[in-house]
Nucleic acid binder design. Sequence first.
DNA 1: ATGAAAGCGCTAACAC
DNA 2: GTGTTAGCGCTTTCAT
Lengths: 339, 339
Amino acid sequence: MDNYFIFVPMNRINIKDLAKLLSLNPSTVSRALSDHPDIKSETKERVKAAAAEFNYLPNLHARYFRQKSSRLIALVLPEFNMYFIPGLMDGVNTVLKDSGYSIIIFFSDNSLEREKEIVNYCLSWVVEGVLISLSEHTKNCDHLLPLKDAGITVVLLDKVIHSQDFTTVTIDDKDAARNAVQYLYENKKTHILGIFANPSLEITRLRVAGFTSAHLDAGLPPPGDEDIVYIYKDTKSEWLEAKLLAKNYDGVFVMSDELLMYSYASFRKLQLYPQKISIVAISDGILPIQLYPQVSHFLHSGYEIGKKAAAVLLSTKKEPSGVFHHVIPIQLIRLDSVV
Amino acid sequence: MDNYFIFVPMNRINIKDLAKLLSLNPSTVSRALSDHPDIKSETKERVKAAAAEFNYLPNLHARYFRQKSSRLIALVLPEFNMYFIPGLMDGVNTVLKDSGYSIIIFFSDNSLEREKEIVNYCLSWVVEGVLISLSEHTKNCDHLLPLKDAGITVVLLDKVIHSQDFTTVTIDDKDAARNAVQYLYENKKTHILGIFANPSLEITRLRVAGFTSAHLDAGLPPPGDEDIVYIYKDTKSEWLEAKLLAKNYDGVFVMSDELLMYSYASFRKLQLYPQKISIVAISDGILPIQLYPQVSHFLHSGYEIGKKAAAVLLSTKKEPSGVFHHVIPIQLIRLDSVV
DNA sequence: ATGAAAGCGCTAACAC
DNA sequence: GTGTTAGCGCTTTCAT
């Protein structure tokens, strides 16, 4: 007999069912559930008791479809970076988790094409806000304008392109790099190698600019081409090691956690750190304190950026305001005893 | 005059508008857009051209609401772990990105209460599948049963509790720990310290079991209480260092990347590694090759687990099948020259 | 090959 | 304080 019972997806109880059960009108039930002031508290309690008893859960597609909203925030990320991304997501989640918004997440895999597709998904899902860190192949924000036109709040974070169209949340990249060099200089380091990521990123260009200008400010000769190395996905560590030994460097600036992780083994292997050179990095803070010996860094916290960006998004939704470029202050974490 | 132009959210073009524009019926437009065989190709082309011209994008809430589906997969994670989570998300994304599903992400922050709330969100969003790694306070899967009852496919991954109700994707935790000890033993290490996470996790208990049983298999005396250390969020590294020096250990087993990161500085500081001890870890693979010196490990790839879990989810949706416990094979990555 | 009409579950005017 | 009714945008019978 058992095989007569085939699986039929349980028809979930809805507001209409609840109304029938209580001999009320669907609209009354709806209002009771959302604590509408018109409904007397006795009715509210009856309705809520029944809702709890029969495990009523609203269908959010129906609700938000009707309300022409979605309570959905899109988080768009270019890649899976183990240092920065988890902190960033943590920060975003911290702000959004009790706000009633849910997070729909997209990865552009550093492709502009994919980023454009994702913009369409955001429109199709009628998201209420977009937090986006741009792909490394994105050169401008034109493809984000349809979001703006649709009235969707967009906040760029971390990997951004500054424009008049969109609010951004970043650290002061140029200043961070400048401070780092200055710090090395104050500790009598004058031959400094800068280790940078892909120069097509605005974030890289700004940090290179800061690196260079700090040399000038300090009265040091400007760094030559050989003093600035760009590391790509396929750069071999042997190549970096040759660069490290090419000159008598006494200081190294590393612009990110990935690059610190990438290069640290070389510093140790060549017995440069802590013996001969000082290192300053820009970092999310987790890696440099776990390394041995530890590494001084300027704190570039994904958590803080995520929190700020999400907060800016929510407050912009509450009361719309103009485009603003928010800059998260950085902070020196001094961890070596050698400099 | 300018202030007469207040912002009115642009009424997006919908199927009805498109139909009016083309003097067609909305249903015809709908069918044309979804390549219904009844519609002649000339009409299809007209419709698609107009859709492209006027930037028509479907309202997915309306579509999936009508279709009683959602093309939404929930990814539920307990915390922000920099080693494992990014790889896991990468794996999930790799499988889902071209499947038409979007990912809605929730973090339980290791709270069972929050996990229950998230289950309700999944039901309210009518998600089509749930990929969940359990919170460390979750002791059974009863709170997931409403998902099952609603016909929603659930796949547990990594931090799981095995039961007859839900499919799981994990590595063979017990076997991985056993292999690790065996590997140390084969390299003549007989005094082995095991470093473990919170023992309330099934994943920890299994790895401890493997650690212990491997001692017996090898004919070693079973590890005493002092040979197994559990590291909690607030455990001080001084305490670990005392344990490391308490006996003449020649081998250490570390059950995860976080713990490897946590303990590695101590090994180096005390000049234990590579001088006096060998280390074997269970790891996602990124950290141990970047450390200097590198660390041998059994590869526990978040990427592979994420990929497998997402693939299992999709295939289960295509043709429903019973509960199955999938085990991802682990692989020894031998990296030290000292053992 | 296309049109007409109904309805998914919910909320918000508008009645009373 | 509660009921009536309409409609969000879309798909899908059913009719032609």
